[in-house]
Design a protein around this nucleic acid. Structure first.
Lengths: 168, 168
DNA sequence: TCCCTCGGTCTCTTCGTGAAACCCAACAAT
DNA sequence: ATTGTTGGGTTTCACGAAGAGACCGAGGGA
């Protein structure tokens, strides 16, 4: 069978994967953040097969992450530009980069450094924090169904934790 | 050919995808954050085929995101627990959830709400910011090669932006 | 005009995905 | 001790998607 799709899954993670969870897709978005705009920019930078790149760009346009703009002076020649929705992926890309900087490459071995263009200082690390800015970990959090929760989500979030179901 | 692997790519995004970019993998991690530990927890929650789940869990253990702990009272019975490296993915999952809350579901339709367990208040939104906390967008950032940059990365980051290469 | 580049599409092979069947070890009930 | 059930997988197999590479029409520079 083909790959299972997550369209119907009532979960933000699944929805995000549906939009850009395919193999090359997030790297295409990354390249766009680095300034790539044209089909050939992406293709040369990634070494991706053209049919795949074509399909992924189409998918990203369909999901409103890129817009396809005709920039031909006398006919068709296209650029793929990040929309506002695509720009908002900066946080996701930053979270991924910071995670691998710390846990894959290790501090001091970062392949890329991101700075504030004006001040030249490195950007602040992303942190999950409460309203006062205090750092929070997984143990400090509580999840509950929101206004858009499906019955399945409610069931998932209200089940008893394993510790209580089966004490050891 | 089968899927291209990104092991050798000198980029944090690619490395992160290598660790958990496979189709089900991030949803498995999400379920772990929601409290799943046992093989059957993940399987029932996701409806994933057992061979795939088995391979994904193995992959996550290989990458140090989960550890496989024998909890059998008299023989083997396993739990998969997030390591510190796995816990650090909280930021990534939060970024993904916040993006889809805003751009897929829309404000007021969030399927899940995350709160500080102590205060009951919703957690602060992740923001890319400079050292003083000022919000930054893609345009405010500058990327440069870091100490671990490969020649390919340096080439990518130091090329002229398209605007300057080919003014319109 | 020629030629190269851009932005794709088509074909063909290979590989990953997923359903279902199968399997053995651990507990649980009797 | 025997039987049954659940847990945690592995094996088999069919199918669809991924990827390499050939091909192609239109654009634009010389």
């Amino acid at each position: 069978m083909g790959r299972k799709r997550f369209d119907r899954m009532n979960c933000g993670i699944a929805q995000a994967l549906e939009a850009f969870g395919d193999w090359w897709t997030l790297l295409i978005v990354r390249d766009a953040f680095f300034g790539a705009r044209r089909f050939g920019d992406f293709q040369r930078s990634l070494g991706i097969a053209k049919n795949i790149l074509s399909a992924r760009l189409q998918h990203l346009v369909d999901h409103g992450i890129f817009e396809r703009v005709d920039v031909g002076s006398e006919g068709e020649r296209f650029e793929y530009r990040l929309t506002e929705k695509g720009d908002a992926l900066l946080t996701v890309l930053t979270a991924l980069r910071e995670w691998s900087d710390e846990w894959v490459f290790g501090r001091g071995n970062e392949p890329v450094i991101v700075r504030d263009r004006r001040t030249g200082r490195r950007i602040a690390k992303l942190r999950v924090a409460d309203a006062d800015g205090a750092h929070l970990t997984r143990r400090d959090l509580r999840t509950e169904p929101g206004p858009g929760a499906s019955p399945a989500t409610i069931r998932l979030l209200t089940r008893r934790p394993r510790e209580e179901r089966r004490p050891r």
